[in-house]
């Protein structure tokens, strides 16, 4: 087991969305993807801060695209998952599945 900490829940959601969106992963689409799949509203600020953090940790890289008039002359920052990021997602998934194993019955049982 590596010393690398596991991803937080929100970080994991963002990482998965970036993986899924492939070439089209920038903040707007990432947020929409998570919102569409989870049915939860995300705060824009939280998305940006988390993207920054993941980039600082070395899990994401980013590149600026050319500016467009539609965006008031500002380019998009596209994100891609790095090798370390893939490792981290994998680690987190395996840790979570280990924790989940055998618990399906316990949480599906109706409360009474």
């Amino acid at each position: 087991m590596s010393e690398r900490p596991f991803l937080g829940e929100f970080e994991l959601l963002i990482m998965l969305a970036v993986l899924r969106l492939e070439e089209n992963a920038y903040a707007v689409t990432i947020r929409r993807d998570v919102e569409a799949r989870t049915g939860r509203k995300l705060a824009r600020g939280a998305v940006y801060v988390t993207l920054d953090r993941l980039a600082r940790k070395g899990y994401l890289t980013s590149s600026m695209a050319d500016p467009t008039p539609e965006r008031g002359g500002r380019g998009k920052r596209y994100y891609a998952v790095t090798a370390a990021g893939r490792h981290s997602v994998r680690d987190t998934r395996s840790a979570l599945s280990q924790m989940w194993s055998g618990l399906d019955a316990a949480i599906d049982e109706p409360d009474n």
Binding site: Y48, E70, R71, G72, R74
Partner: peptide, 12 residues
């Protein structure tokens, strides 16, 4: 480094 955010918000 975060000027892209302004663009994102413009787009939306």
């Amino acid at each position: 480094g975060c000027r892209n955010i302004v663009g994102d918000l413009d787009e939306e």
